[in-house]
């Protein structure tokens, strides 16, 4: 079974040289720590920067340089800064090759819910709806089950949706799964996790074809 860093490490393997990538808050942010050295990707933060670098050294933080999670960041050589309207033109206009975001629920047709729980304080969708509505290549990074042990990979989302039929791949602590017309297709198992464990933790339709390889982390 993977921890959050393991999920991030597996997703980092999806990155291709030359891609522009938007990472959401939470597990997705960790992906930046595991990009292979020979793969050059440029990270976008939707508040308006391409070429986001690591956190600044203590004492070098700049209130005028933050990411979409409001954390202080640095700008790498070759970075560029732009306004919000331009930033979402990059997103909506499909100039970003990959979006990684967290989710509360994903359905087996690729719907995603990650912004609202009825009866609880609603914080807002931020840029998530624009990101999922436009990107061709959306990977969800999340735990397979919630804190109560219930599956987050469902036949149908129970929470208000962020986007419909948009998720392409889900990477969890247990597995890598692709969204297909017939449901979640099991691609890889996490180290030490059996197909049965994945079956038991997946409520949505699950397709298992042949031997399922273990992830190489």
């Amino acid at each position: 079974m993977l921890d959050k860093n393991g999920i991030a490490q597996r997703i980092a393997q999806e990155m291709k040289d030359g891609w522009y990538v938007n990472l959401g808050i939470g597990i997705p942010t960790l992906v930046a720590n595991y990009i292979p050295e020979d793969v050059n990707v440029v990270f976008q933060s939707e508040n308006g920067i391409l070429g986001m670098g690591p956190f600044p050294y203590d004492g070098e933080e700049d209130a005028d340089l933050i990411n979409a999670g409001k954390q202080t960041i640095t700008a790498l050589p070759g970075a560029c800064i732009f306004d919000s309207a331009t930033s979402f033109a990059m997103i909506r206009g499909q100039h970003i090759q990959m979006t990684v975001l967290g989710a509360m629920e994903v359905s087996d047709n690729g719907d995603i819910a990650n912004w609202k729980i009825p009866g609880r304080m609603v914080k807002g969708m931020g840029g998530a709806m624009d990101l999922v509505a436009s990107a061709d290549n959306i990977i969800v990074a999340m735990m397979h089950t919630n804190k109560k042990g219930h599956s987050k990979l469902l036949r149908q989302c129970s929470l208000p949706l962020t986007g419909v039929s948009c998720v392409k791949r889900v990477v969890t602590n247990l597995a890598v799964l692709d969204i297909t017309d017939l449901g979640f297709k099991l691609i890889e198992r996490a180290p030490g996790v059996s197909v049965d464990e994945i079956k038991n933790s997946t409520e949505g339709r699950l397709i298992i074809e042949g031997e399922i390889p273990e992830m190489k982390i």
Binding site: E46, D83, S84, F88, I91, M121, M125, G127, A128
Partner: peptide
């Protein structure tokens, strides 16, 4: 917001930026 004193209209960030632009 919960007490109803404040009206809140939440809209996607990109739509908000575009609507202003």
């Amino acid at each position: 917001m919960l007490s109803g004193e404040l009206e809140v209209d939440l809209i996607p960030q990109g739509s908000l930026a575009a609507r202003c632009y």
